[in-house]
Design a protein around this nucleic acid. Structure first.
Lengths: 195, 195
DNA sequence: ATCATTTCTTAACATATGTGAACGAAATCC
DNA sequence: GGATTTCGTTCACATATGTTAAGAAATGAT
């Protein structure tokens, strides 16, 4: 259960971490399990944890005034997910995080997050780099969302996240790409013709 | 010259900072001036600084294979801007940052960034929160980009950044919103009719 | 297995945004 | 201050995506 997290830390920091320090970090995390469709964070409620996905998958979404769900992020094994604004500000969440499959996660609450940052040398830096990487990726995603048409965005998404294509319902991928399910269906059909 | 930065730090950290520590931080920054159209970062070149805008404005953009510029961020007095990926990884930048008006900035290079993080207690946290806030805002922006039509996006942008509307050419705002200048012109015309 | 629910596909039509071109206004350059 | 370029607007037409609706396919429950 711990090895995926260790790999993740190593990848983000680009170096190995001390075994004992890693154990202290692990000790601050709670193992939790959720059924499919369970909510890990809920809109309107303060989000108490940031989650590392050990097994399974989830996604976060915003609910529009008209009830539409707008998908913001997907997360599978090895990814982190939360409503960061809510977690850090302790204000009500604006996103929901929902399990797509049964999930096992390591959950870190804010008190333990603070303790980890204060007592384990690389933790502060780890989260800074983690968020930094996410920010950089998001900036690129928005540039592409604005400049490319839907078929190119889908093609890039498939290439970048082939695992997601397998495991995530198309109507959620459509939302993530900013189009309707019918449009994604059309795009997929056309891409088969061309290929 | 220093008061804008002090305000910025206070706002991000949500508390005052020690005067002496602030001076040490300031001492690590270089004052620089750029003419309109000058490049603060250039695609293909490692971006050596992160910039705090003291006076003037800039924007960052991606250049598409067909030569189109895709605007990613605007920055005016009190904002930070850079190609963060390039700055931290020391790899070639994928964005350009260009002055929209003559600008005065405080520029922080990577060596000094490290020194500041290592020697001034709140600096590490300051940059983490800064990036965190930017990440949260971007996530919201992409959700809206995907779910709202161009007229609503423009309306929200005007409301959120009235100063930008005054100072930034429309064709750049159009790019930022993911539409063509002609479409923005049409949207503006229609919004006058309705109002 | 059967039925109910959810997800995906297809089609005809509606609408928003893109494209190309023209023009004038404004800004910039000598 | 006049020449030149850049920017904003408008229009007619092209195209991508949305909408509505129906049914097929897949999934889940009993």
């Amino acid at each position: 259960m711990t090895s995926a997290l260790k790999e993740n830390i190593k990848k983000v920091l680009q170096h190995q971490v001390d075994e004992k320090q890693f154990s202290s970090f692990m000790a601050l995390m709670e193992e939790k399990n959720f059924e499919k469709k369970a909510l890990l964070c809920e809109e309107g409620v303060v989000c108490k944890y940031i989650y590392f996905i050990d097994k399974g998958s989830c996604y976060s979404y915003l609910t529009e005034p008209d009830g539409e769900k707008q998908v913001v992020q997907f997360a599978i094994e090895g990814n982190w997910i939360s409503d960061l604004f809510s977690f850090f500000s302790e204000k009500k969440a604006i996103y929901c995080v929902e399990a797509l499959e049964p999930v096992n996660v390591l959950a870190l609450n804010k008190k333990n997050f603070q303790i980890a940052c204060d007592t384990i040398p690389w933790v502060d830096r780890f989260f800074r780099v983690l968020i930094q990487n996410a920010y950089v990726a998001l900036q690129y995603r928005i540039a592409k969302t604005n400049s490319e048409e839907a078929d190119a965005r889908y093609k890039e998404f498939s290439k970048l996240h082939p695992q997601f294509i397998q495991r995530i319902p198309q109507y959620l991928i459509a939302s993530y790409l900013g189009i309707k399910p019918q449009s994604l269906s059309r795009i997929r059909k056309e891409s088969i013709h061309k290929a």
